[in-house]
Computed example of a mutant assay.
Amino acid sequence: MSLIGKKIEPFKAQAYRNGEFVEVTDENFNGNWSIVCFYPADFTFVCPTELEDLQENYAALKELGVEVYSVSTDSHFVHKAWHDHSEAISKIEYTMIGDPTQKLTRMFDVLREEEGVADRGTFLIDPDGVIQGVEINADGIGRDASIWIDKVKAAQYVRQHPGEVCPAKWKETGETLKPSLDLVGKI
């Protein structure tokens, strides 16, 4: 079942952000754009490269009004320990959500039941708390956070311009399409 168009269900979780433990709920996703990045586990191999890359793109995403959250089935305590002991993870300024109950991981349908860890899933959520974009990779395939900058711009454009759509490889200054009978078979 596709998660595109699905509203985030109510939840409450503990997280680590900038030296503090904080609570995150579904309410945090209302009123602004969000990217939620699930990863298998703290203190691993590909995961720190992905989360560091996400941090390197965090300022550009913030400029677009996007808040970023990373999630694993580790606890918020483990996130703090990883933040304190990893050069890559110590740079992270965005919120690191702990999901030891696996509620969020199940809600976003990225839980690997046998292992109790998440797949590499990235979700773009609009200000209404509705999922607008999904990327899920196999465990050994790391993600590139920079691709979400153009995806966010496209999602924001479509939201602000009903009746228009963004074609493949669309950039902010590119042309959009207005779906109509006249375009059928002519693109």
Results as ranks from 00 to 15, higher is better:
63 E>N: 14
117 V>N: 07
52 E>I: 00
45 F>V: 10
31 G>T: 02
134 V>Y: 04
44 T>R: 14
153 K>G: 00
85 H>C: 03
144 D>T: 05
96 M>P: 04
57 N>Y: 08
119 D>R: 15
148 W>F: 15
65 G>I: 09
60 A>K: 15
143 R>G: 04
118 A>F: 10
114 E>F: 02
102 Q>N: 07
115 E>D: 13
156 Q>R: 13
36 V>D: 05
73 T>H: 11
128 D>H: 13
124 L>D: 05
111 L>H: 06
131 I>K: 08
53 D>S: 07
122 T>M: 08
151 K>L: 03
90 S>L: 06
153 K>M: 07
141 I>H: 06
56 E>Y: 12
51 L>N: 07
122 T>S: 13
83 H>N: 09
59 A>M: 06
40 P>H: 14
97 I>C: 09
131 I>P: 01
61 L>N: 12
59 A>W: 01
128 D>F: 05
53 D>W: 00
88 A>D: 11
34 S>I: 02
119 D>N: 13
153 K>R: 15
57 N>D: 03
53 D>K: 02
146 S>Q: 11
133 G>M: 12
50 E>W: 03
134 V>C: 02
94 Y>S: 04
122 T>H: 02
152 V>E: 05
96 M>H: 10
135 E>P: 00
118 A>T: 05
157 Y>Q: 03
135 E>I: 09
115 E>L: 14
97 I>N: 12
66 V>K: 09
137 N>M: 06
95 T>C: 15
109 D>G: 05
157 Y>G: 01
147 I>S: 06
82 W>L: 04
31 G>F: 03
38 F>A: 14
153 K>F: 01
150 D>V: 00
44 T>I: 11
82 W>N: 12
44 T>C: 13
33 W>S: 10
116 G>T: 10
71 V>Y: 08
62 K>H: 08
38 F>M: 13
123 F>S: 06
80 K>C: 01
156 Q>G: 03
61 L>H: 13
85 H>R: 11
83 H>S: 13
39 Y>V: 05
108 F>T: 04
89 I>E: 07
85 H>E: 11
129 G>V: 01
88 A>G: 00
85 H>M: 04
144 D>I: 03
135 E>G: 01
149 I>S: 12
62 K>W: 00
123 F>W: 08
90 S>M: 08
107 M>C: 04
107 M>T: 08
110 V>R: 09
153 K>I: 01
131 I>Y: 07
60 A>Q: 14
66 V>T: 04
71 V>M: 10
136 I>C: 07
97 I>W: 10
123 F>Q: 09
148 W>G: 08
54 L>K: 02
72 S>N: 07
43 F>Q: 02
49 T>Q: 12
34 S>Q: 04
97 I>F: 09
47 C>H: 13
